[in-house]
Design a protein around this nucleic acid. Structure first.
Length: 276
DNA sequence: CGCCAGGCGGGGG
DNA sequence: CCCCCGCCTGGC
């Protein structure tokens, strides 16, 4: 069991349930279990300590994955000066933007398009169970996210079992482009935001919003401000911003950490009625 | 039954 | 460039 001490600004429920990831499930005892980097983990938090039971005992990996390697004191300080945001930040004080694996994030957010969270999560589960590697840890069976090479060898008929709907062909396109080397994920992470986004959007099924989510939730590009229907609603109805001016407004209002601000707003208004 | 869900691609203006 | 529509599927 790993212990990470003196952890501030972190809450498991807020981090795993704010919509950035889809594979972490809450257990009866309040712990969260999931799979990351090909490893199972059961995570709990008590006071300022995070405890991780996993077949990966690399503390640095988990700190990084959970975003515990960032200074949220500093980030929050630079985001102040807006009473709506301050309120949301107080509510979702323990949200951390994770650093998820690039390939998994690409697949997950392709699946997220015009879809709802519970179904996204089920499709990803079926994808992993059907085509990922089966492993076990302390009697628990789990499945890893299948890599691009594995998925590139499948047909649309093979993929039908995950019931992804029209997104199946996009998953396959992503797998083929990554597997063939047409898109090199190792190079992608070295590109600047604009270039990386352009590269991602070569994949069918990755448009503006999905690309932004990948940049933010996998590559720590905190300036990136994904605009889903919720954020559009919040910006137009709460901030009274014209829909076409959202990007400009976000950049000006929230600055270099606009993406993190987006997550506080998103989480608050998903949990609380926007008209309240 | 109809509608919509954390968009996207493709077509037309 | 902008706008608009259809889309797999499942839950209400």
């Amino acid at each position: 069991m790993l212990e990470i001490k003196n952890v501030k600004d972190f809450d498991l429920e807020q981090t795993f349930m704010c919509g950035q990831c889809f594979r972490w499930k809450q257990s009866d005892d309040g712990s969260y279990t999931g799979v990351a980097g090909g490893h199972y983990a059961k995570i709990t938090k008590q006071n300022d300590s995070v405890y991780i039971l996993s077949d990966c005992e690399d503390t640095d990996f988990w700190e990084r994955y959970l975003g515990l390697d960032e200074d949220y004191d500093k980030i929050k300080a630079s985001l102040k000066g807006d009473s709506v945001l301050s309120n949301c930040m107080e509510y979702g004080y323990g949200i951390r933007i994770m650093k998820q694996e690039l390939w998994e994030t690409i697949v997950s957010f392709i699946i997220s398009a015009n879809n709802n969270i519970s179904r996204i999560s089920k499709i990803i589960d079926r994808l992993c169970e059907s085509f990922g590697e089966q492993k076990s840890f302390e009697g628990i069976t789990y499945y890893t996210m299948p890599d691009a090479d594995t998925l590139a060898g499948l047909t649309l008929e093979d993929l039908a079992v995950i019931r992804a709907g029209f997104r199946d062909k996009y998953i396959l396109d992503a797998a083929l482009k990554v597997s063939s080397g047409e898109i090199d994920l190792n190079k992608l992470v070295l590109m600047d935001d604009t270039e990386a986004k352009k590269e991602l959007m070569k994949i069918k099924g990755i448009g503006n919003k999905v690309a932004d989510c990948i940049l933010l939730f996998s590559m720590s590009r905190y300036k990136t401000f994904p605009k889903d229907v919720w954020i559009k609603r919040i910006l137009t109805e709460v901030y009274r911003v014209n829909e076409k001016e959202i990007d400009e407004f976000a950049m000006q209002q929230f600055g270099d950490f606009a993406g993190i601000a987006q997550q506080y707003l998103f989480y608050y208004y998903r949990e609380n009625d926007i008209n309240a």
